[in-house]
């Protein structure tokens, strides 16, 4: 298990989550958890994913998600889970 947090923020419209999920499926990345909120017309989404089966580098993942983000007009970021775990858990 190699858990990574994906966060997305941007103006909401049809197909944003679908685009991200398609990219993850194409790259053999398993989604473990999804949470999202929409405030006014802005979407804020967080996913916990397992990148164990992803064959490429972390930089490639960031780049790929960046391209998906551009295509749907949102900002998408991937980070290893450790930074959140270390900061919020003793």
């Amino acid at each position: 298990m190699n858990r990574t947090i994906i966060t997305l923020v941007g103006k909401d419209h049809v197909g944003i989550i679908a685009a991200v999920c398609n990219y993850l499926a194409e790259n053999n990345i398993n989604i473990l958890d999804i949470a999202q909120t929409t405030v006014q017309e802005y979407i804020n989404m967080m996913m916990i994913v397992d990148i164990e089966g992803y064959g490429k580098s972390f930089g490639d993942l960031c780049h790929g998600l960046g391209e998906v983000g551009e295509s749907v007009g949102c900002s998408i970021k991937a980070q290893h889970e450790d930074i959140f775990d270390k900061m919020h858990r003793i």
């Binding site: 947090i5 966060t7 958890d33 949470a35 909120t37 804020n44 967080m46 916990i48 970021k77 889970e81 930074i83 959140f84 775990d85 900061m87 919020h88």
Partner: peptide, 12 residues
Amino acid sequence: MIGFNEVLETNA
């Protein structure tokens, strides 16, 4: 598991 608010706090 890490919560939504914790992720948002760190990223802010």
